[in-house]
Design a binder for these strands. Structure first.
Lengths: 355, 355
DNA sequence: TTGAAAGCGCTACCAG
DNA sequence: CTGGTAGCGCTTTCAA
């Protein structure tokens, strides 16, 4: 007799009701507790082998899968590491880094969740993230995290809030991946080569601003105190935009361009060559990120090589912070000073043929 | 009086306990029910404005954020759409598509979760996904979903399991994005131009196999029944590998190469030109995906343009399936036939200068 | 208009 | 070695 209680209260529209541990218990003829013990290999308790088998078989037969929400509700904590995603492809470099990070976190038994935070911004996003009760949040600058947002997350149980970017956010553990340094390298290189009017490509694609703005700032910093000038050059990733910019270039008097990265540089290089501009003689051109692409072009692109620490490293940092949340960031009373922050990035200029 | 019951049972190691709706209720001097009504704007019940204010203020003050797990546990269903991620950057084309999809799903009020499924494979992965009780799963071929895996997901409450790829999986709703067609286009184009020994680049980078294998298959299909031959050409994304392949090419007698996509094509093009091979006179070269890159090279790359339907479209499909799970896939008794499947991809060859 | 209480699925105590 | 049971945070009847 499948003595199902009439189930009057609120029918979840499930077609076949999803099997629960109680169902498994019933089928195996044991209690829910025993099911839990068996399926979690609880070492503190010894269950006879026949029972184990019965439980496992019952679970198998029903297609039982534990309910993560219920589990973490009971446990009072999750193993979720939240990676908010921006709304842009961030390029091969970051793609690789991100994959490494995911791998490493997974090995440490975290549940990596990339959360699409598109329409949201600032504290709104922080709230949405907090609803999942992640044990850690690693923000790549997809949204502007405020100190208040960090506080929301911390209060909701996040033991580590890590920002990867330029500006440290109060209360968060800031891992410096300072894009300014990329710009600074490029700027220094170009100045050293004798260029004095430096164009800096600013991609018009939305979201790339997170990277391009600090890179520009870095070039400005390098030029500060010299007689050199810095000219921002908006550019969309299309041939038309590149041609237009090329046409405008002479009137701007720019003698060298730092083109954000190798992809934009290659686009601009093509436009320059097609317009009969000699590179680097008429105009020098520099990329960044040291993509393979840059070596395939003629002239080969000078670039800025960016060494990012491994995702493994960052994953370990997450794990340490989760284990002991108040390490570096001075968290007494959330009136914290800026975290010193690790440094996961090094940059250096590589000269090839375009500068 | 903060009459906190001694909290003897099991201390979750929370530093400051995370505020719950009960805390809000206490502070506002109302019941938990009222808090829920106010914060969810439950229309079926009318709460006085002063009470609403008090509740909101209390929530604000405590930094209360609802607990998603508890909520969905109670509700019996989530709004999670799971996008399992592979372990490779999938290229700009798919990146764009993926972003569109996320946007669109978000607008439909789904919680988009990209789940890192790296070390897992097959049914193991399906289990892990099922633990989150997603209402829908959209799989890009990151893992090989089996009919059994699909069943696990369905039984755990997933109302839509969608696979994007070549082979339909039994029980899942298959959205055809048949990479074979890309290969077929390339093959047909090359044959039409009179080439008879077609090399097909197979990237050695792990994970790209999902795309490259069907593309190769497509070329084979195009060549079937003709006197043409097809030669797979393993290639890593490095200059060395490209140079090695170039050196080996003459002995293979290949007169045209379909280089998987424009990126690999540009790599190989460089190596060919450096070796003094004339393109297309000595060896023709064809890319795919119609990246901007292909137009920047000289000779300009012939390519296969891939029109993918918008993510918006797919999001709507997800929404429809969630609303009415047994639409197209014949689901009576999970002995289903293959879903006819929508078609989200069109491909056509574009001749430029390299073929 | 508001409160009391049941119960979603799970794990961890404490008895037996 | 196994079972009963409380309770995680939330929503939603039903009663007041």
């Amino acid at each position: 007799m499948t003595q199902t209680p009439p189930r009057p209260p609120a029918g979840p529209p499930a077609r076949r009701p999803v099997p629960t541990s109680a169902d498994v218990a019933r089928l195996a003829g044991v209690s829910r507790a025993t099911v839990s013990y068996v399926l979690n290999n609880t070492s503190a308790v010894r269950i006879s082998e026949p029972t184990r088998r019965r439980v496992r078989e019952a679970a198998e037969e029903l297609g039982y899968v534990p309910h993560a929400a219920a589990r973490s509700l009971r446990a009072g904590r999750t193993r979720i590491v939240l990676l908010p995603t921006a709304h842009v492809p961030v390029g091969p470099l970051y793609g690789h880094f991100l994959n490494e990070l995911q791998w490493a976190l997974r090995r440490l038994d975290y549940t990596v969740v990339q959360y699409a935070s598109m329409g949201l911004r600032g504290d709104e996003a922080a709230r949405a993230w907090a609803e999942l009760r992640p044990v850690a949040v690693v923000s790549f600058g997809a949204v502007d995290l405020t100190p208040f947002g960090v506080d929301i997350l911390k209060r909701s149980g996040a033991r580590a809030v890590i920002t990867l970017g330029t500006r440290p956010v109060e209360g968060a553990h800031n891992v410096v991946m300072d894009q300014r340094r990329v710009g600074a390298c490029a700027g220094a290189h170009l100045l050293e080569r004798g260029y004095r009017r430096l164009g800096v490509v600013m991609p018009e694609e939305p979201g790339l601003n997170v990277f391009s703005a600090p890179r520009l700032e870095g070039v400005r910093g390098a030029a500060a105190g010299t007689d050199a000038e810095v000219v921002p050059l908006p550019l969309a990733y299309t041939e038309e935009s590149a041609a237009a910019l090329t046409a405008r270039l002479p009137s701007l008097g720019v003698d060298a361009v730092f083109a954000y990265n190798d992809e934009y540089a290659s686009l601009l290089l093509r436009a320059l060559l097609d317009a009969g501009v000699s590179v680097p003689d008429d105009t020098a051109l520099m990329g960044a990120d040291d993509l393979l692409l840059g070596k395939l072009l003629r002239p080969r692109l000078s670039t800025v090589q960016v060494d990012m620490e491994t995702g493994q490293h960052l994953a370990e940092l997450v794990d340490r912070l989760v284990g002991d949340p108040d390490r570096t960031p001075d968290d007494h009373g959330h009136q914290a000073g800026h975290a010193p922050g690790h440094d996961l990035m090094a940059a250096r200029a590589i000269r090839r043929e375009s500068t």
